[in-house]
Design a protein around this nucleic acid. Structure first.
Lengths: 132, 132
DNA sequence: CTGAATCCGAAACGATACTG
DNA sequence: CAGTATCGTTTCGGATTCAG
């Protein structure tokens, strides 16, 4: 006999990792910076968000915002008129991620340098191996 | 006049989000499940890790493990012989992520369903709009 | 058994031009 | 202002085959 959990794992084996889905939803090159920025700044217009993110293109910003809106993490409010005006803000659900972000920021503060060091050491060993 | 923070943001705009780098390092389709599994299970051989992850291919497993090893998050120990035997385990640095994972798992327990619901609602509205 | 090598397709990302 | 439309590039993951 199968338990529910076993059935779930057998049909989708990769979900032996319970945080797989949330990783897909929250973490990518641009989803995280967008959520972070909206969480920090409250409501922002499209153009202002674009400027704060620095190097994002309008297409990618639109695509990413659509996904976040679809997943209920971001709220979009359109104020028709000329010129058009659209406000984006984080939703309650999105704001519930702030603890996650906080823990990640703390980890980063204490450990990102160690990763960088590990990387440098690895390259070093790589070079040493190539010289032989 | 520019504040220090503005100058910093202007020189590397995308790093207005302080957790960008750690996201790149830790979260992807397979890095997270691998770290999770090694964190749970201690030391595992290549093949056993492969089986636990379910649907990963050897190439992707190798590639991902190399990156994690390079970044100091995973330790690789080779026991030469025939047949070959290689053990992978999480490093101390990798283990320091367990708090992050824990927080994420808790968030997922309480909120993943809400994301799914939001997605369903969004599709619903999409269909309604198409019918008009 | 542990991968390396190769090829492939999909998806994410990016540059540019244009529109209501 | 806030996108859309197009297109090209890059990256990631996946399938298969082969080798030490």
């Amino acid at each position: 006999m199968n338990t529910d959990i076993e059935v779930l794992r057998d049909s989708h084996p990769e979900e032996a990792c319970p945080i797989g889905p949330v990783v897909e939803i929250v973490f990518s090159r641009w989803t995280t910076p967008i959520l972070w920025t909206l969480n920090e700044s409250g409501s922002l217009r499209f153009g202002e968000l674009e400027r704060r993110l620095g190097s994002i293109t309008p297409k990618v910003l639109t695509d990413t915002l659509r996904k976040l809106e679809r997943d209920g993490l971001v709220l979009r409010t359109s104020h028709p008129g000329i010129p058009a005006r659209v406000e984006y803000e984080i939703s309650e659900l999105g704001r519930s991620l702030s603890g996650v972000f906080q823990v990640l920021a703390t980890w980063s503060d204490g450990n990102l340098d160690k990763v960088r060091q590990a990387r440098a050491d690895y390259e070093e060993r790589d070079l040493a191996r190539m010289r032989r």
